[in-house]
Design a binder for these strands. Structure first.
Length: 471
DNA sequence: TTTAGGG
DNA sequence: CCCTAAA
């Protein structure tokens, strides 16, 4: 017997019309999206959707037990989930992309389902292996769709406009549980509880959705994002997303380690001066799919990422089982544990990498390398100029070059982000032109010389300077 | 695994 | 940035 508690299958994202782009507005509120996430985290920590009141300096609040009101301050560092090694990059992606397609889309739940399993249904699929009677409990922590519904009350204070969030409840990601029919209800409950506990303990992140779209830019303020006390916050929602259970050691300073154990989060968050580390990476901004519509697209999910802390399988579930269990528990266990653990790993890689805009110096290095090696040798370029930047894959460099060429062609007014010196853009254009005609495919050591732009300050009429190679 | 492009 | 087809 297989039970499933699915909160969402972002799978049918395409069934949902894209929510209208939210209206950005700039105001005085200075809280950032991250702050909201902190609020959400605290709620999570208490495992109850208690009313959360956020106030800047009010002395007290009527918050409930477990945690009193929290004064959120800045200093939240985005966490970074380091990817596998550079060379495994694509492979990892390949291994998980299918899964991602299936789960990435999340949505705002329009119903408060609470933390309990609100819709347990029999899985139509048959358990593949012979462990039909297994008491394995699997927790699918990868869907990243747990979401909740929030109700909010705009505070119309005269001067400082604060936004108050009253999150009724969170919905947890899908839980995939499997227990023998001989199991008792009690064991089932425990199994579910363990699955939930494991999920929360495994680290969870919070996402913010507005108008059905995920808000990724954690640096923007609430007002800038469109979350203002004056707006109808009905379109605002939070989501729980499975996060890495552990924080890989940061490699670079700009890669804050991520630690997200529930406990840690709870501790940090309950402190008014805490500066918890929160992952800012949000999987996808695609409009969420409706949780209410996915039931139809229910497809075999037995193979989807499911995590199952081994401890979860060891006991609990069996004690009450008294029927004939054809397969020894141990065997079942081994069969179940292995695959599930592998799957949860994949789920951890399913997160979209955090955005890392190229700095001018990086662009400089890239341009330099391309001038020397030409395009089409991104592997070498990576090795030459970004050997120590694990977060810059050769694919990234190639992409960056692509955008640089584009950037160089458009008017400065159309460019965004940290402005790239015109000098560099000129070199980009020159190198691009040079290697384009030169096909750069020259094997061997290409010209050991240096690509030199003779007309760096090429005219802005689109005529790229013709570089020359000097020996 | 890399390259090359589209998404 | 992601996803892939090809090489």
């Amino acid at each position: 017997m297989v039970f499933k508690k699915r909160s969402d299958y972002g799978f049918n994202a395409f069934n949902v019309p894209r929510a209208p782009r939210s209206i950005r507005r700039r105001g005085r509120a200075k809280r950032t999206v991250e702050d909201s996430q902190i609020c959400a985290f605290e709620l999570l920590a208490s495992l109850a959707g208690k009313l959360l009141q956020e106030s800047e300096s009010s002395a007290s609040s009527n918050a409930s037990e477990g945690h009193d009101h929290v004064t959120i301050d800045g200093g939240i560092k985005p966490l970074y989930r380091k990817r596998k090694t550079y060379y495994n990059y694509d492979r990892c992606q390949y291994d998980t992309y299918k899964r991602r397609k299936f789960f990435d889309r999340s949505s705002i739940v329009t119903y408060d389902g609470g933390i309990s399993s609100e819709s347990v249904s029999n899985s139509p699929e048959k358990v593949m292996n012979g462990d039909k009677s297994s008491s394995a409990a699997m927790l699918n922590g990868a869907c990243g769709i747990s979401s909740l519904h929030t109700s909010h009350h705009a505070s119309n204070k005269s001067n400082d406009s604060h936004v108050k969030f009253s999150i009724k409840s969170f919905r947890i990601p899908e839980l995939y549980i499997e227990v023998p029919e001989t199991a008792t209800v009690g064991s089932l409950k425990r199994t579910v509880m363990e699955a939930v506990t494991a999920l929360l303990g495994g680290g969870i992140r919070v996402g913010v959705l507005l108008q059905g779209k995920k808000v990724r830019d954690d640096s923007r303020t609430l007002s800038q994002t469109g979350i203002s006390s004056e707006d109808n916050l009905d379109a605002l929602g939070f989501t729980l997303e499975p996060g890495p259970a552990k924080a890989p050691p940061p490699v670079y300073s700009e890669e804050p380690p991520l630690l997200l154990s529930c406990d840690a989060a709870a501790q940090n968050l309950t402190s008014s001066s805490a500066t918890p580390v929160v992952d800012t990476g949000i999987p996808d901004d695609t409009p969420g799919s409706s949780l209410l519509t996915n039931s139809a697209n229910h497809m075999d999910n037995n193979h989807e990422l499911v995590s199952s802390p081994t401890d979860m399988l060891t006991d609990k579930s069996l004690p009450d089982s008294r029927a004939l269990v054809p397969v020894p528990a141990m065997n079942v266990e081994s069969l179940a544990v292995v695959p599930f653990n592998q799957k949860i790993r994949k789920s951890e890689l399913a997160q979209r990498r955090t955005r890392r805009p190229f700095s001018v110096s990086e662009v400089e290095a890239l341009v330099q390398a391309v001038e020397e090696l030409g395009t089409g040798r991104w592997r070498d370029i990576k090795l030459r100029a970004f050997e120590n930047a694990d977060h810059r894959t050769y694919v990234d460099l190639k992409d960056k070059w692509k955008t640089l060429v584009h950037t160089a062609k458009i008017s400065p007014q159309q460019r965004r982000g940290e402005p790239v010196p015109q000098e560099l853009l000129d070199r980009v254009l020159a190198a691009h032109a040079y290697w384009s005609q030169h096909q750069a495919k020259q094997q061997g050591k290409h010209h050991p010389g240096t690509l030199r732009i003779t007309d760096a300050q090429a005219d802005r009429n689109g005529v790229a300077a013709i570089p020359t190679v000097t020996m």
